[in-house]
Simulated assay, not measured.
Amino acid sequence: MHRLVFLDLDDTLFQSRRKCPSAGGLRPAAYLADGRAHSFMTARQRSLWQLLDDQATLIPTTARDHDALCRVDLPFRSWRILDYGGVILDPEGHPDGAWLARMAAHAHDSLDELNTLLDRILTFVAQERLALQARLIADFGIHFYLVAKYREGRSADLERLQGELIAPWVAERRPGYRLHRNDNNLAVLPAWLGKEWAVRYLITRLERDWGELLTIGVGDSLSDGSFMAECDYAILPRGSQLFATTLANLVRRD
């Protein structure tokens, strides 16, 4: 039986130095475009990676685009899921054509609304002099979703943007869009985009090719829960966003 592990990366398998529990034993795992090390693995994360890599086929399931995934220093040798599920790469690194065509058709229907929202955000940021940047995320010629980040440690600026503009915009268009917030990132995702859709598609395809599968989902955030629910088993880091909303209340203290 083939074992597949669908594995989120950022804040699951590695994280920025600021988020690491200590400075000891860290190893670089991902780099910025200028070559600087940005994300690091702890000894426990390296041990988890080794355990999974020895026993299963690892499939990164990430919000990273292709360029950002190429800057992850880990040997992924099989399928890869990028862009919140917008792109599926085969083991040779080529996009799955049927999936990409499906995403392109959906993206065409959402692009005008996302561009209009981006214009409103940029106007709001300029008028209120907020330390924010916002852009549409595109890969392989397809615009997938919108992301906003705060700069210079000014997290309150992102709170304002979320509360005064983005959250009401998403609420008016539910269930067509959803909002995902994780640390300094705020993403507006169309309903057709999601890691879960890509995981379901790939499981179905690989079951057809390989036969019966054992599937495991590994992730840290609320947005990961949906793709993990497509799998037979789930693993989540203690102290993560997903842990806090599921298992934390079961922890017994003396």
Rank of each mutant, 00 (worst) to 15 (best):
L7K: 07
D11R: 01
T12H: 01
S16K: 04
S16D: 07
R17T: 05
A23C: 10
P28K: 01
A29F: 05
A33S: 12
R36G: 01
S47D: 13
W49N: 00
A56M: 06
I59V: 15
R64M: 06
C70P: 00
V72G: 11
F76K: 14
R77S: 05
V87P: 00
H94C: 15
P95F: 04
M103E: 10
S110F: 07
E113W: 03
L114E: 11
A126N: 15
Q127K: 14
E128N: 06
R135L: 09
F140G: 01
Y145I: 06
A156L: 08
Q162W: 01
P175T: 02
R178C: 10
A187I: 03
A187C: 15
L189I: 15
A191R: 09
A191H: 14
L193M: 12
W197Y: 10
A198W: 07
V199K: 02
R205Y: 05
D220N: 11
L222Q: 05
L222F: 05
S226E: 09
E230H: 07
A234W: 03
A234Q: 12
L242E: 06
L242R: 08
L242Y: 11
T246G: 11
L247D: 14
A248R: 13
L250D: 11
L250C: 09
R252Y: 00
R252Q: 14
D254Q: 12
